[in-house]
Write a protein that binds this DNA or RNA. Structure first.
Lengths: 328, 328
DNA sequence: CTGAAAGCGCTTACAG
DNA sequence: CTGAAAGCGCTTACAG
């Protein structure tokens, strides 16, 4: 690969001048500029970013940590970050930290520190004590999407209110026996909040909450529904803690000839891509993932360390209708 | 951030020695080693990779270019590359090139060159003339997944044979009026191959091919089906060029009360995550995405520039059954 | 076993 | 307008 020196030699100037021309930093004659630029072009010169970063003491890199790419909502977030990067000349260093894999998250963090990323965006990753400490030592600005990381800014919807709103939506549509399923009750953040919101709404309405825990997955939704079916305790409506899980519920329902929404209403959570791809479309709580990604990168860039709570909204599709008993 | 010099000063040795200790390259007493290591630990020292890369003349970075993260099958590929990276201390520089966006792909390529990536893995990206030339100038090893890029190794299934096999699968299940839909007939690679395979199989069986072009999307599948329905020309079976499109077909079918697979058999392509999330499960042609990702990174690492053709297989789920007319 | 020196490719004051 | 020099943080022969 050609270097600045090669160009300098061919253009009969010093590397200093080449650098100035290439950076358009002024201080050269038009004639020199042309000569240097021409040679650089001919050589298909590419700046060695490692060298640039070394002197600039920065990396122009932003680190993105996700649990894994299969998480259905990671895609729109990464997309919006990438779009920003494209517009602004930033670069994305991607790493997966797995689920509750402390060791791997530690590796991610160290890797990002070594690369001197300008900041980290973490998507739904939980930090345990040791990684919290590491993060503190590394002094890397971080912004977390979806879950709270101690002392770090967060961008998220209000899970408690959203779960309440979802539950109330079901109640206002005439449902009374409503189960919350596939929610991770051990998850100190999202899980707990969604449970609390659901319970609060149910109790306010004088209804009895019923929760089947799970890991937000399709399988969790499917199994919960099968369990309910086997016990002959199918509720009137199921509030799934994610759209993946809602898809599992609908799958199980269809498999057993239970009509959605006539015999079973299903409410999802996320408005991820699958929500609009299955029939009936999943009525769900929309999280503005694209906006989350964009805000995250903007905050990082502006060194804005404030948290922001984004609005959720209920996206109505076909999986919830007015309950029969509610029809006048 | 602490540097090697800081450690050297505190440990009362020279940077050379610190470097040796940190790299375990030998040539120091156990006593020195301990002292240096201790101080490095206390300082939470993180090597500046830009500096390391500058002298090593490498980056330890592998570039991954995808059209966008929303492509349903990008996820498993990225996952497997990331897993490899985690095991082997590599890092992933991610970039999106959009769809047929020559300018953006060019930016991606230049960005990768600037970062001195060890190699590039491109996922389903088409290179136009100008980028082919750029790639050549940049001299970056590349391995393409799914589509052929001139003069570069490719990892893919045989789309022609796979489409033939899919069509024959449908035929052998008793279907005769089979349409291929949502296939991009302008796509010189995948699209053309899948069309050709379908046509060949149809003609060999004495059947009439019928193709509705599209962009592999859910919407393309849905619209094609609605079109067929409106024209009252619904075939017995639809071969969708992707699982997303197959989901669209099934959606439209359910919406119009057409039973799958009883009244309409649906065959997908990819075996992406959505295939198992909708009911009935999509019978589809499985592409080994994880394996593709793993092979790609291994080839890149071993400087193996041979192409490899991976086996596809038909994954049977519920969207195709024996056709009535075929029942004895 | 340890240190002094040169160098990776670039940028940036400082002179002239 | 241009050049010489120092320096970013590290590694690696070469001496001793």
């Amino acid at each position: 690969m050609a270097t600045i020196k090669d160009i300098a030699r061919l253009a009969r100037v010093t590397p200093s001048t080449v650098s100035r021309v290439l950076n358009r930093s002024g201080g050269y004659s038009e004639k020199t500029r042309r000569r240097v630029q021409k040679i650089a072009d001919e050589l298909h010169y590419q700046k060695n970013e490692a060298a640039v970063n070394l002197v600039a003491q920065t990396s122009n890199l932003i680190g993105v940590i996700v649990t894994n790419a299969t998480t259905s909502f990671a895609a729109p977030i990464i997309d919006s970050i990438e779009d920003w990067a494209y517009q602004n000349g930033g670069r994305i260093l991607l790493a997966h930290c797995g689920l509750n894999d402390s060791e791997r998250l530690k590796t991610c963090l160290n890797l990002m520190a070594g690369r001197k990323v300008n900041g980290i965006i973490s998507v739904s990753v939980q930090f345990d004590e040791s990684n919290l400490k590491l993060l503190d030592q590394l002094q890397l600005p971080l912004i977390s999407l979806g879950v709270k990381v101690s002392n770090q800014p967060m961008i998220s919807i209000d899970n408690l209110k959203a779960a309440m709103a979802g539950t109330n939506y079901l109640i206002s549509h005439g449902y009374q026996r409503i189960a919350l399923i596939a929610v991770d009750t051990n998850d100190p953040q999202t899980g707990k909040m969604r449970c609390a919101g659901y319970q609060k709404a149910m109790e306010s309405a004088g209804l009895t909450p019923s929760i089947i825990p799970g890991d937000y997955s399709f399988t969790a939704g499917k199994q919960a529904t099968e369990l309910l079916l086997a016990k002959r305790e199918l509720p009137e409506a199921i509030f799934a803690a994610s759209d993946d899980a809602a898809a599992g519920v609908i799958y199980a329902a269809q498999e057993h000839g239970v009509k959605v929404p006539e015999q079973l209403a299903v409410l999802g959570f996320d408005n991820s891509s699958v929500a609009s791809m299955i029939y009936p479309g999943i009525t769900t709580i929309d999280q503005p993932f694209k906006q989350m990604g964009r805000l995250a990168i903007e905050h990082l860039t502006n060194q804005d360390i404030s948290s922001v709570e984004l609005p959720y909204q209920i996206k109505e599709r076909g999986s919830v209708a007015k309950h029969n008993s509610a029809q006048s």
